[in-house]
Every structure is written in C-alpha cells, then in structure tokens.
Nucleic acid binder design. Structure first.
Lengths: 148, 148
DNA sequence: TATTGTTATACTCTATAACTATA
DNA sequence: TATAGTTATAGAGTATAACAATA
C-alpha cells in the first residue's frame, strides 16, 4: 500500500523530506496499530488507553489531558472498555469527585499480545535495517522525541 | 504531551525499542496532522484524500483501495468534500460506471497551506537534528519504507 | 465558585447490506 | 454475471452544553 507524499519530490534531503518520510512512516505504523487493535475488536484510541494504563493508574481527567480529548469522550471510551472487562473504575478515596482507572488482568494480557503483534507486523519494515542501523534510527527518533 | 511506551524499558536498542520509538513518533506526527486538519475543518482521512489527489487523479474504487476503506465510506468522504468545493467528481468517459475525483483549485491551495503548517508544527522536533542527522534519519526511514 | 465526571445531543467515520446502472 | 458507485442503517468516536456531586 503506497503512502501519499505531502511534499514535492526530493532534490536534497532537507526538513521537508524528513517531514514527508515521517508522515508516511506514521501512516504505515498507525495502520498496523489500527489493524492489530481491530483484530482485538478495539479502536485505536482504546488501544492507546490500554497502553497508557499499562504501567500507571490514571484519573478520567488525566486520561483526557494525556490523549487531548474531552472528558466526556473518555467517559464513553472507558465505559465501553469497562463493559468488556478490560479495565475498571474505582473511586478516589482522597477526593469524592475523582475516579481512578486501572487495567484488569484481561486488559494487561490483551496489551501484551497486542504489543507482540505490532512488532511482528512491522517486522518486514524493521528487518530491512541492520542492527547498527536499528540502533542509529532509534537514537535519532528518541533525540527528536526528547529534544534538548 | 508524553507518549505511552508499548514496550518495556530499553536495556539495549533492539527491534522492540525501535517499534516503541516508531509508535511514539507516529502518535506525535498523527497528532500534528490531525490538529492541522482540524484547523482546516477536515478529518485526518479527508486530509489524506486531499494529499493523495494532490498529484494524481483517482477513481472512487482506487481511493478506497488506497486508503483501505470501503467504497461506501469513500462516497461519504468525497461527497462531503465535494459539497465544500475541495474536489469534484467527473464521469469516466471510457466506462459509464466509473467516476474520477480531482482536486479543485481551492483544494490544491488548502493542501499547500496544510503541508506548510505540518512542517512548522513539527519543527520543534525536526529542528532537534543537525542537517547531517536529518539526512541520515530520512535515509533510514526511506530504507524501511522501500525495503528490498 | 470551581472542579470532576456523566449524560444528552449532534455530527463524522466506518462497515454491511441492498440497490442501480453499466459492462 | 460481475463491477462501480450510491444509499440506508447502525455503531463508535468526538465535542459542546447542561447537569450532579464534591471541594
């Protein structure tokens, strides 16, 4: 499945070409994430919710801020996931208004399976690199993700 | 806005860490694309449709295959974009069943503006790299996108 | 008064199924 | 019969507005 270019054809490899490559690789990656999620009957956003909760507990409001979504949207997402037994809500004992969301055991397992499937689905792409290239690419991506 | 990890903490930079970095950079990039699209009152999918049509003409069915969506979904997307004057439908003179979709002048301009805004929004990230790093990263990403 | 969360409402995206028109 | 596209329908994601409960 070819990915559309956002920029013109590359004469030199400058910032525009990087943005173009980033956009294309992102569509591929998000496509894989969306497909894996769908195979677990999850939306991409629900997958993100589960991934976020994998190593922490969060309030509804924190989840909303984290994902850049309205709290009312989180209510729906969490409600549907809770009905399916992937996570549960618990009251915040320190604040009667607050609610904490945590993964259930089933949710934890689905996360683990999903992560494996994502890695396998991306393997045709990631295997195109040598171990040295893999390290270099990861370092460069992390450099962008954590600019200083 | 921090991005959730899908993999465990990195001891070495192997394939799992690359997948994790890819997922996180993709969420950032897609977030930017979604926000820029929203500022033009477009969905991410509509932005993709416009980007695809930027340098080619396509039938409804081709668009569906390209985006991995059902043709009925494309009918709705194209219909709404057509109402807004961003693209137009024209019959295929060689096949009475076929329909070609092309950008209008307005659609072309929105695409150009959008591409600039995306590049600007990603600048805080892409500017973290030196020109040499930018070239290396782009080359590595393209290597993955076009495996041999 | 301000904050946390939910509910009601409306719109878009999406797929499935049924349909029309053309090949 | 098969293919291109549309329409009707239904479910999920999303935001806005109004609301209840708590601080």
């Amino acid at each position: 499945m070819p990915i559309p270019k956002l920029a013109a054809s590359p004469a030199v490899l400058g910032r525009d070409e990087l943005v173009d490559s980033l956009a294309r690789i992102s569509f591929v990656t998000m496509g894989v994430l969306t497909r894996v999620a769908a195979e677990h009957e999850l939306s991409l956003t629900q997958l993100r919710v589960l991934a976020i909760l994998r190593d922490r507990q969060m309030s509804m409001g924190d989840l909303a801020a984290y994902l850049g979504l309205d709290r009312s949207t989180i209510s729906g997402l969490v409600g549907r996931a809770e009905e399916r037994g992937l996570l549960r809500r618990a009251p915040n004992p320190l604040d009667g208004r607050g609610t904490y969301v945590t993964l259930t055991q089933d949710g934890v397992e689905q996360c683990a399976h999903g992560a494996n499937e994502v890695a396998e689905s991306l393997a045709p792409m990631t295997n195109a690199l040598t171990p040295a290239e893999t390290r270099r690419l990861t370092t460069l991506l992390e450099h962008m993700l954590n600019p200083r």
